[in-house]
Nucleic acid binder design. Structure first.
Length: 776
DNA sequence: TGATTGTTTGCTCCA
DNA sequence: CAAACAATCA
């Protein structure tokens, strides 16, 4: 059996070159996964390399699992792959630190191998607590998230709090340095590592601990790194530290697909590879096996507008295929309906095919979901609100973390009064203050305060109950299997009871989520996992990990689409300010990354690619929206490759002076944001709210094109129109003069109107008090 | 203390 | 629109 036969010459060379550093510049769809898997199979089968001396690092757990599976398949009946390491950098580091991290305690006092991993929520908790402690006002200083990202940035650039302080040029940065220092202190006190630390501390450990480094170097004779263009500096250093002996490192990447610079990805890693390894061989894979010629040409043309690239031109032997569809929608809803309708037609002609709808930001999924639901089409949203981010799941995980590590104050804080057990704000503050004053974690502080009788009577009782509860559960957690522990937590803390008493519509869904968690715990327990492995898993799963290949329609962000392919792809929201995102528009570098993102998105499509944009898009639910112009990326696609279709009629004019100003302001401040909402679970409620019957699946798009553009915001009800204060109508205000109604809440005389008055801006007024005269 | 109500405000993308 | 927070009252 030969793993070279089915490959093209460049791929073959890449697979066969196994005795020195190798850089594979693999264009989109050029078969890089194929090369990696074949390379591993070749090493094991043909060269007789033991699987355990091969390590492959990928970007997501899902990619890792898939890769392992494909290698297994290739070697089926010939070799076992047991011992082969395929994982993400983060998982790799967690395992390294858990298994061989003891020596890190030399550099990081208090570190033990059963450290906790802090996710973004935990970080937020720490920063909030620090702000509270120092009386910092979020509004006057940095927003929590901004502070976190600046801290993370500093860490990734190997800056200590002192260095931040010393190089600070403004008071804000000096203050940030103080927050940073405190933040690091809190992590250490809780024996916790954040995501950055997982990598950073692994690097420090390997630097410091020669024995461990030696052992890993000895063992890993062949290292493969996928998506190399998105590695950051620590990942790079890790690679260097792991390849000191064998130097057989194979990195695969594509500088045109580098889309994670905001997370610290350092493009130098790929650009300088040949300098770092003078003996390196570079191989380019430029034949694309995925897309039609039109798709490939369009994508290549777009990305060729970038200056920071090595430059390559993909080619294909495939047919031209369909042209790139470009739909110009009146508004976001229209766009969503168009997509849903097209999918419907498409799947009627080609049942069983997979379709993806890609977008720049998560909030865009909401409208598309609604449209798909309207057609009764099943879909799957990847990312956004993942299972492990749900409040009830996080609560339960917090209990587990609290049981596993008594010094973890952040998680203790989360659950101390959930469900409510009489430990109120003032009591919590008392504990927190005491803990900080005495430099201890909150859990021991609770014990001390109880001993000293420092609580008011009622609080003392509640806190004592809580302490006993946690101790009881902690004791149980050491004896019982994991799922039993989870079940005990649900029961003893009254969490289940709390949900049972809650008659809100989503409490049932929450209970189901929790029972799913119990199942997950049971499965983990069967695999012999304890609390910390279970928590590691929860911390390291990524949104794209739960991509269901079977789902016919997938909704996902462009970032999540990396590495995937679909026969049919819709790319929505190609508007200036949205994609490219307004935050990236001022910087040439950031803009180029947006363009690469566009390239990634376009090259996901195999057969047909449809782009769309809307003239008018609402940012938050019913609020005033914004007029948009087409993304520059659209104009970068050669006209002859485009098939324009859709309503060419301009949407209703929203030429309001004040609103335009407001729009520009908000665009400047980038309020183009949104959350991924858990979509409405109740379909009939959804339709009832809109007073429409679901469109039957076979309704066809012909009617759709005639859909009148929606009025700009908050559809005017017939009643409202009767009063002539509906949206869009002009009213006369005694003080502000003539203005246009932009938004209307409520009915009749009680209605609250948002009116745009030229020269005064947006005003909220109540119809019956304002003494309005309406015009028509 | 904690439930309820009102008000504000969303700086993307993610392991 | 919906989450997060603040203010208010029982």
């Amino acid at each position: 059996m030969d793993f070279l036969d089915s490959l093209n010459p460049q791929q073959r060379e890449a697979v066969a070159h196994t005795d020195g550093p190798l850089l594979i510049l693999a264009g989109a769809g050029s078969g890089k996964t194929r090369v990696i898997t074949h390379r591993i199979a070749h090493l094991i089968h043909t060269l007789g390399v033991p699987p355990y001396s091969i390590a492959a690092v990928t970007f997501t757990n899902k990619a890792a699992a898939e890769m392992r599976e494909r290698v297994e398949k290739l070697l089926a009946g010939h070799n076992s792959v047991s011992g082969l390491v395929v994982s993400t950098f983060h998982s790799f580091c967690v395992r390294l630190l858990r298994r061989d991290g003891t020596a890190l305690a030399d550099l990081r006092p208090g570190f033990t191998r059963d450290f906790t991993i802090y996710d973004e929520d935990d970080q937020l908790g720490i920063v909030k607590s620090i702000y509270r402690q120092h009386g910092i006002d979020e509004k006057q200083f940095l927003q929590y998230r901004a502070a976190i990202s600046r801290i993370s940035h500093a860490k990734n650039h190997k800056l200590s709090p002192e260095e931040v302080l010393n190089t600070a040029k403004d008071p804000k940065t000096r203050k940030l340095a103080a927050v940073f220092e405190e933040y690091e202190g809190r992590l250490r006190q809780a024996n916790a590592l954040d995501f950055d630390d997982l990598l950073l501390e692994s690097v420090r450990l390997l630097r410091h601990d020669g024995r461990t480094r030696g052992a890993y170097n000895e063992r890993i004779a062949h290292l493969l790194i996928d998506e190399y263009q998105d590695t950051n500096r620590s990942q790079y250093e890790l690679m260097r530290l792991l390849t000191e002996i064998h130097q057989d490192v194979c990195v695969v990447g594509d500088e045109d697909q580098s889309i994670y610079s905001w997370r610290g990805a350092d493009i130098r890693n790929i650009l300088d590879f040949e300098q770092d390894f003078p003996k390196a061989l570079t191989i380019r894979l430029e034949q694309n096996y995925r897309s039609t010629k039109n798709i490939l040409d369009a994508a290549s043309k777009v990305v060729s507008n970038n200056t920071q690239r090595k430059g390559k031109w993909l080619w294909t032997s495939a047919d031209a295929g369909a042209k790139i569809g470009v739909f110009e929608a009146a508004d976001g809803e229209n766009e969503a309906l168009f997509i849903a309708d097209s999918i419907e037609k498409l799947l009627r002609d080609a049942p069983g095919e997979r379709v993806a709808v890609l977008y720049r930001t998560n909030f865009q999924s909401r409208q598309i979901e609604e449209a798909l639901r309207r057609y009764g089409r099943k879909y799957r949203v990847i990312g956004g609100f993942s299972f492990y981010q749900r409040a009830e799941i996080k609560d339960l995980l917090s209990y587990l973390k609290t049981l596993a590590s008594p010094l973890d104050s952040v998680n203790l804080l989360r659950i101390i009064n959930t469900p409510a057990r009489g430990i109120g704000k003032s009591t919590v503050e008392q504990i927190e203050r005491y803990a900080i004053e005495n430099g201890m974690a909150m859990w021991p502080a609770i014990g001390r305060l109880l001993e000293e009788n420092a609580f008011p009577a009622r609080a003392a009782a509640a806190v004592a109950v809580f302490r006993d509860l946690i101790e009881e559960l902690r004791d149980a957690s050491t004896k019982e299997p994991l799922d039993e522990t989870v079940r005990l937590i649900l029961e003893k803390t009254g969490y289940t009871r709390m949900l049972e008493l809650d008659d809100s519509p989503d409490s049932e869904a929450r209970r189901e989520n929790l029972s799913e968690l119990v199942n997950a715990a049971a499965e983990a327990a069967e695999r012999g996992e304890g609390i910390s492995e279970f928590l590691d898993h929860a911390a390291l799963v990524s949104d794209s990990d739960d991509l269901d290949e079977q789902a016919q329609v997938s909704l996902l962000t462009l970032h999540n689409a990396k590495g995937l392919e679909f026969p049919f792809v819709f790319l929505a929201g190609l508007e200036e300010g949205l994609f490219p995102h307004s935050r990236s528009i001022d910087s040439e570098t950031a803009l180029e990354e947006e363009r690469r993102l566009c390239y990634v998105g376009m090259t996901r499509a195999r057969k047909r690619l449809t782009l769309s944009w809307a003239h008018y898009r609402r940012r938050f639910g019913g609020g005033p929206g914004e007029q948009c112009i087409a993304s520059r990326f659209l104009s970068e696609i050669p006209r002859e490759l485009v098939e324009p279709f859709g309503a060419r009629t301009a949407p209703r004019e929203v030429n309001l002076f004040a609103e335009q100003y407001a729009v520009r302001e908000s665009a400047r401040k980038n309020t183009f944001t949104g959350k991924t909402y858990n979509s409405l679970d109740n379909i009939s409620e959804f339709f009832a709210a809109r007073g429409v019957a679901p469109i039957p699946p076979n309704a066809g798009a012909e009617g759709l094109r005639l859909v009148q553009p929606k009025p700009p915001a908050g559809a005017a009800t017939p009643a409202a129109r009767g009063k002539k204060t509906g949206t869009g109508s002009i009213i006369d205000h005694p003080r502000y003069g003539k203005g246009t109604v932009i938004r209307r809440e409520g009915d009749g005389e009680d209605a609250k109107l948002t009116v745009s008055f030229p020269g005064y801006g947006l005003k909220k007024i109540v119809a019956k008090y304002a003494g309005l005269k309406s015009h028509e």
